[in-house]
Design a protein around this nucleic acid. Structure first.
Lengths: 330, 330
DNA sequence: TTGTATGCGTTATCAT
DNA sequence: ATGATAACGCATACAA
């Protein structure tokens, strides 16, 4: 591997000049600049990232924290992040928080150790107060997650709107008894609060009261979905439609509903969230809410790189549009 | 961030001694060792990976090359790799080759630049000859992929056996006309050749001849699966069962078959590969072949770390068992 | 506009 | 058994 010294020798100049060219510094004569560039090309030189890192410079590496990569939503997100990063000559370090606070903090710490230039957080486990301190070591970009009092850029989907149009769609189909699954606790604040708001808003507009029996908290997986359906079956007064919050949960609900002879959407309408590949495969095909994941990943990387380049960070919140995909389950 | 110098000062010893403790060198008195360890703990010290890297040492980072992270098979694989790596204090750099030869070579190059300690390749795009040269810069572990003449360790699933038991299962169900999808070209050599062998072996044992009209090459996605089904529908002499090679393809086949009023498994039996979550969600639930993905990722990381630690590399091939999951589609 | 010298944190060499 | 010192490749303060 050629080093900066080799380039300098070949160009007949000093390391400093080469370094200047490398970093687009002013005060390099055009002739020398060309000379250096030629030498670099000839040698197939590329700067050693470790040395740069040690010197306190860029690492050309960004870290991405996801809860679980096996969740298709996040693997699609990582996919687009990796692709955009690659285009910009960045590497992607991947971290699974496993919804574990300590792990998350460990990963954030890499910013401090200068192992990564910046971090994209696609989920947040700790309180923002614990996380904030790390922003002084490098830029943090929130992607998909959303913290009101956070002073960092965030790209996110309008979860509230997504839920709203989903519920509204059910209402338009004539449903008045609408069940609702959330990944959180259906609290004012906390996980999925935006979605909760969308749900409440749609119901309120239609003059429908919330039935607490039809709220299912802490739901995530296919297995959870099955249990939701079983819970519904025990109810005397059952919802005629259910907003599941994820295609996986929807799949679980559907499988169990069919097992007990319920017709979809006649006996119970089901709406998912994410528009994952399975949505189309389910029987009946799942009505769901599509999120522009690729675009979100793209914006996140571009935003982070912008922060890395500009000293002046502009704290921008980007809301991406969300879309209802109507299939056969509603 | 405390450095080795800080630790040395606190312990009242030299940097060298601290470094010795850090790297488990001999010739350090027990008392001093304890002293150093205490100092490290007190300071919350952890060695700077960039400096180590620059010095030509370990980076505590392994690279994983996958074709596409959105393919559930690979996201599950990455999941298990990341988990085991984390346990062993390794970071995971993720690369998507996108089935692109040049990208793959770019990633391999990181081994040369000492950006990663080792690389796990879960797919191979280039000829082995092009890849082999990189092994001199650091260990490469083949995971899921398989190259006969490669002198590197590999962990893989017995694809041939998996296909064999799948086809045999169809034969036992009374099928004699069995279609077959492959991700490659159904050639003697090349992609999916092991699976092809399993197919041929099972057929041969049952005294069934191969019908070239029922071989579908270059199949990968849900969309491909739909097309396969449509192609089958144009045939006068149709297969009564189809081995799809992936649950996604199976899903596509199924969706299209149902659309045309075919009953599964009566009109056509379908068998998948991977046992992805969708397998259970499909209607009817998909008979498929389960691969011990987690175990494979685990072995790959452990193998790589072993290579990193021992100077002497033992070139081991590990074949993991594979399993038939019978559901309702056959 | 260009070059010299220094230091980032670590480990290896050589001495003691 | 321990320590001083050089070197890894790079970017910057300072000098010219």
């Amino acid at each position: 591997m050629p080093t900066i010294t080799d380039v300098a020798k070949l160009a007949g100049l000093s390391k400093t000049t080469v370094s200047r060219v490398l970093n687009n510094h002013p005060y390099v004569s055009k002739e020398n600049k060309v000379l250096v560039q030629k030498a670099m090309e000839q040698l197939g030189y590329s700067p050693n990232p470790s040395a740069r890192r040690l010197r306190g410079q860029l690492t050309c590496t960004i870290g991405v924290i996801v809860p679980r990569i096996v969740n298709p939503f996040f693997s699609y997100l990582v996919n687009s992040i990796e692709k955009v990063a690659y285009k910009n000559n960045y590497q992607v370090l991947i971290f699974q928080s496993d919804e574990n606070k300590e792990k998350e903090l460990n990963f954030l710490n890499l910013l401090k150790i200068k192992q990564v230039d910046g971090i994209i957080m696609t989920s947040i486990e700790n309180e923002w107060d614990s996380i904030e301190q790390y922003t002084k070591y490098g830029p943090i970009m929130l992607c998909n997650e959303y913290v009101n009092n956070a002073k960092v850029p965030m790209v996110r989907l309008d979860q509230s709107e997504g839920t709203y149009i989903g519920i509204k769609h059910l209402i338009e189909r004539g449903h008045k008894k609408i069940g609702y699954c959330t990944g959180g606790l259906f609290a004012e604040d906390g996980k999925d609060k935006d979605r909760n708001q969308g749900y409440q808003k749609a119901l309120k507009e239609a003059g429908i009261a919330i039935n607490p029996n039809w709220i299912f908290v802490n739901q995530h997986s296919i297995e959870d979905g099955k249990q939701v359906m079983n819970q519904i079956l025990t109810l005397n007064d059952r919802p005629t439609a259910i907003f599941t919050g994820s295609d996986e949960i929807a799949g679980g609900v559907m499988i169990e509903a069919k097992k007990h002879g319920l017709k979809i959407p006649d006996d119970i309408a089901i709406i998912g969230f994410d528009d994952q590949p399975i949505a189309e495969l389910l029987e009946p095909a799942l009505t769901t809410i599509r999120q522009p994941i690729d675009q979100m990943g793209e914006k996140a990387v571009e935003g982070l790189i912008a922060m890395l380049n500009n000293q002046e960070v502009q704290i921008k919140k980007i809301d991406l549009p969300i879309q209802l995909v109507i299939r056969k389950s509603t």
